[in-house]
Amino acid sequence: MSSTKRLNRAYKNARKIAFDDKSKFVIFSDCHRGDNSFADDFANNRNIYFHALNYYYREGFEYCELGDGDELWENINFESIFEAHKNVYQLLRQFHLQNRLHMVWGNHDMVYRDQKYVEKHLSSYFEPIDGEDKSLFVGITYHEALVLQHKDTGQELFCTHGHQADWWNYNFWKVGRFLVRILWKPLQVVGIADPTSPAKNYKELIRIEKRIKKWILNNQLKLTIVGHTHRPRFPEPGQIPFFNDGSCVHPRSITGIEIVNGEISLIKWHISTKPDGTLQIVRVLLEGPEQLKAYHNL
């Protein structure tokens, strides 16, 4: 199956979410939450991420995570990841309880396309303090894609992980998972990168982006937001509307996309130093805001 057919299928089966100019969304991907070991890339940014997530929760945002939220190639099960980042999942649970959590699976958490797996591992967790199971993400469903559809204009924002344009990581993700667990995870400690990852393979990254842009051109310039390559992308109005939210495993920073007041922006959260030497986590606007209607092409 070609990348075009995979993207078409993802779009056809996407969960549709209605929104208007009063709606607020934050879109992150590629958190790669791990077990807090030396190979857990998320651990370096977990305080930044948790602070940002708290901000979006307080401000009434809906949270969209476009795949690779949990690192289930390096780690065998969700339980070890949950224990390492329990505060994050408890906050995500609050989004879920208010129907403000929208989850997409990527190649590193592709097991979540199996609803039985999700129900078995994410519905509850064991609390050793009380010695009993407690509810977590009861009734949650992961999707291959989301389509945010504007109530007034009908404009659609197609949101998916983006590995549909990556032949190896979509079709042979189990082989990739095996290689990462057995070979590349141990080699990370000495600085050898996984060559199958488009985030660390520039030529493959460019090829993936070209395939997605081609799909956009063949689908009436539909505004598309992806992750997977970890490279933030924010086009100007009039260019191909191909957006990438980046990742949450950049060195000392995380990037994402906000949709507020009918506008779209690329943002970064990072640690900054005050004049007195103390540290603070700050939000920086990288690109935008631009009116969504500037990219509208029915």
Rank of each mutant, 00 (worst) to 15 (best):
K293N: 14
L136H: 11
Q188T: 09
L157M: 12
K268T: 08
Y57G: 03
G288H: 06
A52L: 03
F61C: 08
V111Q: 15
N297D: 10
W184C: 04
E209N: 14
S123G: 11
I212E: 01
Y49Q: 00
Y55C: 06
P237T: 04
A193P: 13
N201S: 03
R113Y: 09
G256M: 09
K116P: 00
W105Q: 06
Q220N: 15
P237R: 03
N77I: 05
N201F: 03
N75I: 02
N44F: 09
I206F: 05
R252E: 02
V190Y: 11
L101K: 07
K200N: 08
M103G: 06
I81Y: 05
A52H: 01
T160M: 12
K200E: 07
K174A: 06
Y142F: 15
F243S: 03
F78L: 05
D30W: 01
Y63P: 04
R33E: 10
G227P: 04
I17Y: 05
E144R: 14
D41P: 02
N13Y: 07
Y57E: 00
V138D: 11
G67I: 01
V175T: 15
D68Q: 04
R231D: 04
W184H: 07
L285Q: 12
A52S: 15
V26M: 11
L183E: 08
E144V: 07
Q220E: 14
D41F: 08
T160N: 11
D166G: 12
G176M: 04
K5E: 14
D35Y: 03
R252K: 13
S124A: 15
E119A: 08
L217S: 14
F50C: 00
F178G: 03
R231Q: 11
I257Y: 08
L292F: 05
N44L: 06
E79V: 10
A43R: 00
K268N: 04
F42E: 00
G131K: 13
I140G: 11
V282E: 15
W184L: 13
A39L: 01
W105F: 15
I257L: 15
N107V: 01
A193I: 13
S29N: 02
L286S: 10
N44Y: 02
H96P: 00
I225N: 04
G106A: 01
I225P: 03
I27E: 07
L221V: 04
P128F: 11
D276T: 13
C31I: 09
P235T: 02
V111T: 10
A193Y: 11
N218H: 13
A43W: 00
G67D: 05
V118C: 06
G288T: 09
L221P: 02
Y117L: 11
F243T: 01
I216G: 06
I140M: 13
V260Q: 13
L183D: 02
E71G: 06
N13C: 02
G34N: 04
N8F: 09
F61P: 08
K214I: 11
Q155E: 13
E119Q: 14
R207L: 05
V138R: 14
V104C: 12
I17R: 12
